[in-house]
């Protein structure tokens, strides 16, 4: 056995994998949440759709996204595998356990919280990621008045009114209309897809439950990851704890949860 397999087959080494992938997923959540805030922009979804094009075509982002898919799978597999082995480390359980006397419940239910998140990720990627890549998302044509900044949108259709598609994910041209420069942008309308999907109250409920699961998973998980890496010091523990609670357990899940609620209740 090489030292590398020896290290990653030890309990500490396996926890290291869970922590590194978990913390990487945390950085992803920050980017994903802030990027998606563009859904709230009142521009017929133009900036959100252009952001989607960027995120699916930029080579650097593409590379990172493959690391991301791999991380999700590896994190879930290793996390659940360890949870299973940990159950086997106590084959005969206690008749009475007073868990709340010594630990926070989130730390004891990471496997269940993670499983809820895993179900969510599958549903979520099927709704949007697979739909965007392989499904039939209509195209939209934006006309932006470059002097006033006004944006109008209409479905991108042929003369007979049938939806059209273009090879590229976005096309931009500058045309002059009545002597004023306008930018015409044609792109896949993921924004419309999002708005449509979030009209379904059951799906919105699943999203909300999942955001609670993510919040609780990270309330314990974010700071736990640092402990696993061996980073525990009174100098920076308060900062880690603060980020765990405020950013990862509250702000990020709340930001995500606001999106389906916005389309269901307001838009």
């Amino acid at each position: 056995m090489s030292w590398l397999t020896r290290m990653f087959s030890s309990t500490i080494g396996q926890k290291l994998i869970v922590a590194l992938t978990g913390l990487f997923l945390c950085t992803f959540l920050v980017v994903h949440m802030t990027g998606n805030l563009q859904l709230f922009k009142d521009d017929h979804g133009m900036s959100f759709n252009m952001y989607s094009v960027f995120m699916t075509t930029n080579p650097l982002i593409k590379t990172v996204s493959y690391i991301l898919y791999f991380s999700i799978l590896f994190h879930a597999f290793k996390g659940l595998h360890l949870a299973y082995k940990n159950m086997k480390a106590r084959p005969v359980g206690y008749a009475v356990v007073n868990g709340k006397a010594n630990s926070h419940w989130t730390s004891r239910y990471m496997g269940i919280l993670g499983t809820i998140i895993l179900v969510f990720i599958v549903v979520h990627m099927n709704d949007f990621w697979a739909e965007y890549k392989f499904g039939h998302i209509p195209y939209v044509q934006y006309t932006e008045n470059l002097e006033s900044g006004e944006i109008t949108a209409k479905p991108y259709a042929d003369e007979a009114g049938n939806p059209k598609s273009i090879a590229n994910k976005a096309e931009e041209t500058i045309v002059s209309i009545n002597g004023v420069d306008h930018k015409i942008t044609i792109t896949k309308d993921l924004y419309a897809e999002v708005a449509e999907t979030f009209k379904n109250p059951l799906l919105v409920a699943l999203y909300l439950i999942s955001m609670f699961a993510i919040g609780f998973h990270l309330y314990h998980g974010f700071q736990s990851g640092f402990q696993t890496l061996g980073l525990n010091h009174p100098r920076y523990n308060p900062a880690i704890q603060f980020l765990s609670t405020w950013v990862f357990a509250i702000i990020i899940p709340a930001g995500f949860a606001a999106m389906p609620l916005y389309f269901l209740l307001i838009k």
Binding site: T11, I12, Q14, K15, L16, L82, K85, N86, A89, R90, G99, A101, N102, S103, H104, S107, R108, M110, H220, Q223, S224, Q227, T228, L229, G230, L231, N232, H233
Partner: peptide, 26 residues
């Protein structure tokens, strides 16, 4: 089993051994 940093050990240890030792060992 492996450690999931629940902190139950530190809370129940009669000698108050600190979790920071686990971080040091990691």
């Amino acid at each position: 089993g492996s450690c999931t940093n629940t902190g139950a050990c530190e809370a129940e240890c009669p000698k108050g051994i600190s979790l920071s030792n686990i971080a040091r060992m990691n």
